[in-house]
């Protein structure tokens, strides 16, 4: 639509959108600002916005008090590990469904998606029990497996929609060129699907990073990721807003940045391709 819009209208749009955008973003902004305040300034009346004594001490207190780095490490392992494992399992499955479709492919995809909708709370106790029996409670390995399983349908689904866009003839050409199945997937399909695979990884890291049911219920001190780290701040002890803010900022910063990169893919991934 190459059409001149009056700059008056454009200005109004801009002002309105920025206003709303800032209001929505404000809680995050406020959290980040507060993390640099002293506890006293954090609850100052009236609230102070920018003109306070900027300090980094909250960050070091949080690190000392609750060992942020360990939780961060656990989050990285859980989110990264479950996504990687999921991708390894999902790529062959998505290849099969995209390039060798059968009459049942659609049903299988649907069924896979339906496992995603199993309410976690409905199966909490069995999983809890199994974890105790298998010695997986509060272990990184156990969480990697669970998060891989809950996100596997989304990973398969996303890869499937990306693979569908790759012309089958190219894979057939590889087959004619003497490529084995492994070479076909490794040297032809995967490199061609890199953008899709990357956004699948991104979205799933985000989902796994923020998952707050299994990570809270299946971990204790040892394997807790950042969701658990933050939950430990839910019972206030004295003045703690600045520290809470510092902890929150540290918990969300990595994923916020990743998320901004992957917003386009988000739509596709989360709607299972139903909206493009």
């Amino acid at each position: 639509m190459a059409r001149a819009v009056s700059s008056r209208r454009k200005s109004i749009n801009t002002a309105l959108a920025w206003g709303i955008g800032l209001i929505i973003f404000f809680p995050i902004l406020w959290t980040i600002l507060t993390s640099f305040k002293t506890e006293g300034q954090a609850i100052a009346d009236p609230p102070v916005f920018l003109f306070f004594d900027w300090t980094l001490e909250n960050y070091s207190i949080v690190q000392d008090r609750s060992d942020y780095m360990r939780y961060l490490w656990n989050s990285v392992i859980i989110a990264g590990g479950s996504t990687l494992l999921g991708i390894i399992i999902a790529v062959p499955a998505a290849w099969s469904m995209a390039f060798v479709p059968s009459k049942r492919t659609k049903d299988i995809l649907m069924w896979m998606l339906s496992t995603k909708m199993l309410p976690a709370v409905g199966v909490l106790y069995p999983i809890y029990l199994l974890f105790i029996k298998l010695g997986l409670l509060d272990s990184l390995f156990g969480l990697v497996i669970v998060l891989m399983l809950i996100n596997l349908p989304i990973i398969i689904w996303m890869l499937y929609t990306y693979f569908k866009e790759i012309p089958g003839e190219i894979l057939e050409a590889a087959r004619m060129d003497g490529a084995s199945l492994k070479s076909e997937i490794l040297y032809v399909l995967t490199p061609m699907a890199i953008p899709g695979i990357a956004s699948t990884i991104l979205l799933n890291v985000i989902l796994a990073w923020n998952e707050a049911f299994w990570t809270l219920n299946l971990t204790a001190a040892k394997a807790g990721p950042l969701t658990a780290f933050i939950a430990s701040y839910s019972s206030p002890e004295g003045l703690f807003y600045a520290k809470l803010s510092a902890a929150s900022t540290m918990a969300i910063a990595p994923i916020l940045i990743l998320g901004w990169f992957s917003q386009k893919q988000l739509v596709r991934g989360l709607t299972f391709g139903a909206v493009k």
Partner: peptide, 22 residues
């Protein structure tokens, strides 16, 4: 867009605590 999309990437424990307390 980036401003508006941001809350989605905030983990539920963080957003709940921030809203509740601050």
């Amino acid at each position: 867009r980036i401003l508006i999309i941001a809350p989605f990437f905030v983990m539920p424990t963080v957003s709940s605590l921030v809203w509740k307390n601050m």
